[in-house]
Amino acid sequence: MCAVVVTHDRRELLRECLGRLRAQTRPADRIVVVDNASTDGTAAMLADEFADVETLRSEDNLGGAGGFHLGMRHAHDAGFEWIWVLDDDTFAEPDALAALLAGAERAPAGRPTWLLGSRVNWTDGRPHPMNGPWLRRWDPATVSVAVAHRLLPLRHSTFVSMAVHRDAIDRHGLPHAHYFIWNDDFEFSGRLLRDDGAGYLVPDSVVTHATARPHSTVTGDRDRFYWALRNTVLMLRDGRAQHPVEMALSVVVTARWIVQYLRRWSDPRALRVILRGLRDGVRHPVR
């Protein structure tokens, strides 16, 4: 098991994140930090305080998607069976990793278990509104079987805390680096779990996503909504992450996002963000 953390200019959050990883009851066999061109002393902090952590330094900010692509490729090439990816503002409970691996052990027989996710809370202990979970609720038999194993079947998951089996990467590839940020995890997990792989939320694996506010896609950073739109359009054009019915639902959800976003930010700048996101989603190469 290799843990991969992607960071950019958030030294203090990263320190807490890595401290939590070190304190795991079942530690990761290796911890890799992808430093996305940080300029806030992250490199020095890593050298001084976390000499046991391997650092992959990028001279350019590759975004979360590029960072996870780089880190997962590195861990995969090193031969690890499981790769646990986390954001730098993810604070794992001490038994989060042990619980994930125990979840893999008790997963139902049948489809291979390729992905495991943690329960993602905000700092107040409630589920973080940005991080799902996206369950297979429309498939009652799958839910029932998974619940009997103290798991919940996932359709999509989040890079806030996601363990991926190397066989899934062998078959479906890595996250798309060109997504930069947002929806990279939604697309990647959707691709893995669409047909042949199973993914589960392990309810007793708990992490805190320590964002400043418990924001969602719509209520988060105003300009980052561009990436959510652009990448959703890219995902729909690509067509590998969802079945046609799911894609139709994604279109509906995205339309609802736009309406909610415009209600929140009703000015020309918001309109420009939307138009740019849709335009670039249509024009940018899919892969």
Partner: peptide, 26 residues
């Protein structure tokens, strides 16, 4: 085989789903 016609309807409450899954319930 599991009788699919007798499966229940899940509540749309992610927090409760997660809480109860820890004791194999939903």
């Amino acid at each position: 085989s599991l009788s699919r016609a007798d499966l229940p309807s899940w509540a749309a409450d992610p927090a409760a789903m997660i809480d109860l899954a820890t004791v194999a319930a939903a």
